[in-house]
Amino acid sequence: MRNISDVIETYIKKAIDESEQRSIELKRSELADYFQCVPSQINYVIRTRFTVEKGYVVESKRGGGGYIRIIKVKPDDKADLVNQMTNMIGSHLSQQAASNMIGRLYEEDVINKREASLMLNAIHRQTLNVHLPLRDELRAQIFKAMLIPFMYKESSDER
């Protein structure tokens, strides 16, 4: 059985996919009423499931007429996506952020399931068995190195 966060995420993603602009505006309180949950549950789903690493931009306006706008960012091509991710990484990278990026690479057909699995294993905290913040520094360096071959992959390569 799926939990309420999964149901809310699926609902929002479906609404975005059905939108011509690949974005939606919603009111937190209305969504909470629809799903019979507290507004903080909606905040949690948006904060954790619609991140930059996963390819979303979230804008919000507070107040009486406030809304939340969620935009699905579509890269120009696969190389552009990999380049964006490389620039996003910086000098430290958490396991969650890296996992989100790997998930997006898989969803966008930049990597296949086997490559995703290899990448997840390489950046996992048990593999990088050192203390923070060194672990996040190593993860950033390793992840950037893993992305380099995908910047130049031919579009004709079999996925």
Score class of each variant (00 low, 15 high):
96 Q>P: 01
96 Q>I: 13
123 I>G: 05
111 I>D: 01
81 L>G: 06
64 G>P: 05
137 E>A: 13
122 A>C: 13
125 R>V: 08
49 R>C: 11
87 N>Q: 14
47 R>I: 01
109 D>V: 00
40 S>N: 10
66 G>H: 07
61 K>V: 15
136 D>Q: 02
68 I>C: 09
143 F>G: 00
46 I>G: 02
125 R>S: 15
72 K>C: 13
42 I>R: 03
141 Q>P: 01
93 L>W: 02
121 N>T: 08
43 N>D: 13
28 R>Q: 06
30 E>P: 07
39 P>H: 02
37 C>F: 04
131 H>T: 13
66 G>W: 01
115 E>P: 07
146 M>C: 10
71 I>V: 15
145 A>D: 14
117 S>M: 14
106 Y>I: 01
80 D>R: 15
111 I>C: 04
54 K>T: 09
105 L>G: 05
108 E>N: 03
33 D>L: 04
73 V>T: 08
58 V>R: 06
54 K>V: 10
29 S>T: 14
49 R>Q: 14
144 K>C: 02
116 A>D: 09
142 I>W: 05
70 I>M: 07
153 K>P: 01
123 I>H: 03
91 S>E: 10
29 S>D: 12
92 H>R: 13
82 V>R: 06
75 P>Y: 02
104 R>W: 03
127 T>D: 10
52 V>A: 11
60 S>G: 08
145 A>C: 11
48 T>H: 14
38 V>C: 00
55 G>N: 00
68 I>L: 03
91 S>V: 14
136 D>C: 00
47 R>L: 06
122 A>H: 09
36 Q>K: 15
130 V>E: 07
81 L>W: 04
46 I>R: 03
108 E>R: 09
149 P>C: 11
30 E>V: 06
99 S>C: 07
33 D>W: 08
112 N>F: 08
93 L>C: 02
